[in-house]
Nucleic acid binder design. Structure first.
Lengths: 185, 185
DNA sequence: ATCAGCATGTAAGGCGTTACATGATTCA
DNA sequence: TGAATCATGTAACGCCTTACATGCTGAT
């Protein structure tokens, strides 16, 4: 099957925008795409070696004094590889929400717990949403290049789906508390 | 850290509703919770053994003729374990959308590809949404027990977030095609 | 001085998927 | 009679996370 390793594509995608160190890459992931993709050092550094071996990226030692610093740069080869992946006719989209699992099985506990779990979820989403919204507004005011449009659109996806989540949280809490038959959606 | 294995909880949750075989469990997962959680045979069968070892479930051989059939039943112990997990103050919620990754990095390809990828996503969501809606309506007409309410609410989550996705798809396609500066949200 | 942040990496483990292996039964 | 579905399981592999290990630099 030999599916591509997605962390490699994340790295190529980021390097296609600017040269970065492994540490920078982690920061970019955390600040820009963490709501739909993650990365860790234990993931990123081996991937960088692999990508360099395949000559999709080049490294240059930019150490200052005793502090090591390896900056990576994407090659033509890497750009092609990235493009091929983006153009593939398939994408794996996974959502794994433990909160929904707990709600689905909530009869195993009690209504108070069910509502409380929704509230925990709601709090988390509210926090993430406020960050995403700021991010989204910044990008919106700076729509001068093609990549900024794409960055904006992904952030917008987050904002709009999170807003839908919050509306659902209200409904769900009300319905559980109402404790009665449900009417109308 | 010893986090609980979630597939174990999925199994306990399903068995808390009715007795099932491993094969049945896979079917229930596929038909009812697959939009936010998955399971595979290579996952389920070892988990069943583990759960039985921990006396959270009991097995009874229900083989008919030469066809093997092992039915599992949850124990009091298992019910307690399930309840404890549901009541834990934390839940891991992960979204990993390769489609968003490809969009974020779409400058690495071209606008046509970006739009095409959104269309692929849209088709997938539309198909899943129509199934979820049917499911949701069936549950809505049958809200007689507490668990049905929870089943309904999780399905509703799917319906409402997928509807938000589709609205976003429209916007995103238009914006990319417009190719101009963005105005208003 | 000390702590946060910069910076690179390895090791172990967890959890999951896919593919493989096997065989019975039911229905067209 | 052949395909789909029922049914159970193992093996290999993939990918990611967490924890560990190390050391420099800049700000307070």
């Amino acid at each position: 099957m030999a599916r591509v390793k997605r962390i490699n594509m994340v790295i190529l995608g980021l390097l296609n925008h600017e040269d970065l160190t492994g540490y920078d890459i982690k920061k970019r992931i955390d600040s820009s795409i963490s709501f739909f993709w993650n990365g860790s050092f234990g993931n990123i550094y081996p991937a960088l070696k692999e990508l360099e071996n395949d000559s999709f990226i080049l490294s240059s030692n930019d150490s200052v004094g005793g502090r090591e610093r390896i900056v990576y740069h994407i090659t033509q080869n890497g750009k092609m590889h990235l493009k091929e992946w983006i153009s593939e006719q398939q994408a794996v989209n996974e959502l794994r929400y433990e909160t929904l699992l707990k709600l689905f099985f909530a009869k195993g506990a009690d209504k108070k717990t069910a509502v409380h779990n929704i509230e925990l979820f709601e709090d988390r989403i509210k926090k993430d949403l406020s960050i995403l919204k700021m991010h989204c507004n910044t990008l919106k005011d700076n729509l001068n290049s093609e990549d900024h449009m794409y960055f904006y659109l992904t952030a917008l996806f987050g904002v709009e789906s999170y807003e839908a989540y919050l509306k659902w949280c209200d409904k769900a809490k009300k319905m559980i508390n109402a404790n009665d038959q449900f009417k109308g959606r």
